[in-house]
């Protein structure tokens, strides 16, 4: 079966996204061994559901979290996309949105929350501090980028990013989910943890 390389996002042109080559490369990699007709169809349905129902766990540590609140408020209303269901329990969330500086004291907590989430799970890093450490990069107590601790799916730069940037990032995550193969275990790329003694 022909593998669909393009993912459609409502009211956004495909060409308007900036990282199409990355996504197409990812599709190629995922489908290296070919794609079955039935599995792909089921995959598409499941991925449609998953990509349109992203429940966030807000890990807001500083400024960016306030912009996220503005995202939830009436003007930018994230309920339109179905993102408004924010779960405070990591067990019920699909993605963890890390907003703000992650310090050395916080890093183990972030890792622990990430581990507590149910599969399939995604990480969105929001804001300069989260991505690289931002203006605090020289500090003795700031993690220089959360990708050193947990795998990040989408980076949303800005200090803080505007609500529109949040949407762009969330759409990128939707696109990424849409090309994934849910059946076939590609999601579980991390190694199984070793048995505890």
């Amino acid at each position: 079966m022909e593998v669909k390389k393009r993912t459609a996002i409502r009211s956004m042109e495909y060409g308007d996204f900036k990282n199409n080559d990355y996504l197409e490369k990812m599709v190629d990699e995922l489908n290296r061994d070919g794609a079955g007709v039935i599995l792909t169809t089921i995959d598409e349905v499941i991925n449609w559901g998953r990509s349109n129902s992203l429940w966030t766990l807000n890990f807001g540590t500083s400024c960016c979290a306030i912009e996220f609140m503005a995202l939830g408020a009436a003007r930018y209303d994230m309920a339109r996309f179905g993102f408004e269901v924010t779960r405070n329990s990591p067990r019920q969330a699909d993605l963890i949105m890390v907003m703000g500086t992650i310090t050395y004291k916080m890093a183990p907590v972030l890792k622990r929350l990430y581990d507590q989430m149910a599969e399939p799970k995604y990480v969105v890093a929001v804001g300069g501090c989260t991505i690289t450490g931002g203006p605090f990069i020289k500090s003795y107590h700031v993690v220089n980028g959360i990708d050193k601790i947990i795998p990040v799916d989408v980076f949303i730069p800005g200090c803080p990013p505007r609500p529109e940037a949040f949407y762009y990032g969330m759409m990128q995550l939707q696109r990424k989910i849409k090309v994934e193969k849910f059946l076939g275990g590609v999601n579980r790329q991390e190694k199984e943890p070793k048995e505890e003694k």
Binding site: I46, N52, A118
Partner: peptide, 17 residues
């Protein structure tokens, strides 16, 4: 209209911890 069905589909495929 299909927002909730999408949620249902998602939650059905979610890991049970």
């Amino acid at each position: 209209l299909l927002q909730v069905p999408a949620d249902v589909l998602k939650i059905l495929t979610k890991e049970i911890i």
